[in-house]
Design a binder for these strands. Sequence first.
DNA 1: TTGTAAGCGTTATCAG
DNA 2: CTGATAACGCTTACAA
Lengths: 339, 339
Amino acid sequence: MQNLKDRVTIYQVAQAAGVSLATVSRVINKSTSVTPATRKKVEDTIEALGYKPSGLAQALATSRTTSIGVIIPSANYVYIANLLAGITEVVKEKDYSLSLFTTSHSREEALATIERVITAHVDGTIIFDDQLSQEDVEKIVSYNVPSVVIDNKIHGERVCDIHFSYDNSLRELIQRYYERGRVNPMAFLHVHNAGRLINRCEKTFIRTHEELGKDYRIINCDDSYTHTYRQFLDYFKEPDNHKGYYICYRDSIAAAVMNAAMDSGIAVPEQVEVLSLVGTKYAHIVRPCLSGFHIDMQEVGKRAMYMLTDLLNGDLVDKTARFEAQLTLGDTTKKVENN
Amino acid sequence: MQNLKDRVTIYQVAQAAGVSLATVSRVINKSTSVTPATRKKVEDTIEALGYKPSGLAQALATSRTTSIGVIIPSANYVYIANLLAGITEVVKEKDYSLSLFTTSHSREEALATIERVITAHVDGTIIFDDQLSQEDVEKIVSYNVPSVVIDNKIHGERVCDIHFSYDNSLRELIQRYYERGRVNPMAFLHVHNAGRLINRCEKTFIRTHEELGKDYRIINCDDSYTHTYRQFLDYFKEPDNHKGYYICYRDSIAAAVMNAAMDSGIAVPEQVEVLSLVGTKYAHIVRPCLSGFHIDMQEVGKRAMYMLTDLLNGDLVDKTARFEAQLTLGDTTKKVENN
DNA sequence: TTGTAAGCGTTATCAG
DNA sequence: CTGATAACGCTTACAA
């Protein structure tokens, strides 16, 4: 096996083994039968020459890349990392490979990403990205790449979707809160442009309050621990604010509010209560432990990849899956007697 | 633009535009000059037909995939997610695409991953994976894919490396500790099979103690928050253990020790001090804030990708880069007067 | 069972 | 400036 080779091709293997291209191809693909003798001969020369088939040429010939695309806004979030871990697990199991595409912030980048996905010629995609519209997804699919879309209500012929369900559990939580005779209006921390999930939750929050005829508050904040922490340090300087129930987008935001409260000498949960919508394992690590909703993104990733392979094989049963957010009550909300 | 097309090929564009293949190829690649008139004609039909070049065929013809491979053990850790974010940022800037390969735990999986990387025909790889040996990397490189290797002392003709430097700062930290007259032996939490980085740190830890003629302790633990938390709850039942300085692999482990101590009524940092080696943003979020080392993995990712593109273009200046771990003193170690 | 030859969708080298 | 035509490395009928 020489170094820095210009890669050995199937043709060279054939020549060295004294057979034809086709035969080598057959032993690689374990397809039609080959005499054990010639098979052995070919396998030996493959080994000796260090031949590896070119996925490129194979893909071109078969028009299957056995590669799937994953489209996400950024890998930088814990729950996206978990999603990726789940996807890769099944990707390996099914012997696919995975191309990662990120969209970032601008619309142009998103469009450029779509182009890339199409030219990359992946067999299918898993899309977890709020910025892509129905049309964007349709465009991808129209180039013959079936897709599973996560938390982004999009439907179509060769599109599956996984839906995160918060509505019922969030509504229940709010109802219970007031049923227990709590009078402080709940506050929802609005984050601009943070995606569908939080928007949906905000809508549910507002609608439920309106149905109950209760007051509520919306507080604008940033999707950044540090900013929110500072903002709430300020906010808690006002004694009137030394109470309240704050519903936050993710762990780190909830932790920011909680830390700001505690660092201002305000008791959590006695005076200020905090709840996060998108929980990760860090909810259990911070003290007090965060109350919040939680969806196992690794499971979501696995599920998404299973759906995609089924879709690709044409034996998909359910075109849609639903993950219900689980509420875990930690120590940032007051305990209520559940009996 | 019809739906579910069998993708339009360059040939069909040529025919529709009344020119030859070659001309279409030229306008795609903006290479040699084409009459503005024909260019426009071709561009229009490309638009009309919704033609996108096949990356596959292009790659086969040029023997460049403009795709790089990233090899990691799992996407599941925060600092790896940050690394990925850094890499993708530059990947887009340089107009590459990225294939993700994970190795998981067994040797067989690692070997399978290497095969996949080779057949995938990526132009280069970024490897952040302790399980791969010098030979493994050499194998990859021998198939004509230059690589940059992170935190895994490997050298070679077409290999760059990024090295994390902990030794000096860790040694200094230890020396200072005893210089201040501290007498409790430090403890190092050994995690089996957690990779080179922690092994190196452990060696430095031991060697420094031996040089100083000081006692030290090695405590075995798991790379899991929950396990370690339970283990240390037990450990702290013994009053003799209500003191000590514990050096932990990562944030979550350090938090486990810290929480176990506090939940056992032990004061941090007054009685028990904790330090983490691999810090993330969560170090600032937990309370008390974790003291620990920190490397900006997003920067590392960007740097790695820059090195790789330089390597691919043949204009690499430095084959090696070094990131020094930064010590951030939080509230889990005692303050020392620095003047 | 094995070999021959025609694609797969591009690029690139020639002539014209 | 443009058009044939031969690669690129492999798969897959079709023949032998």
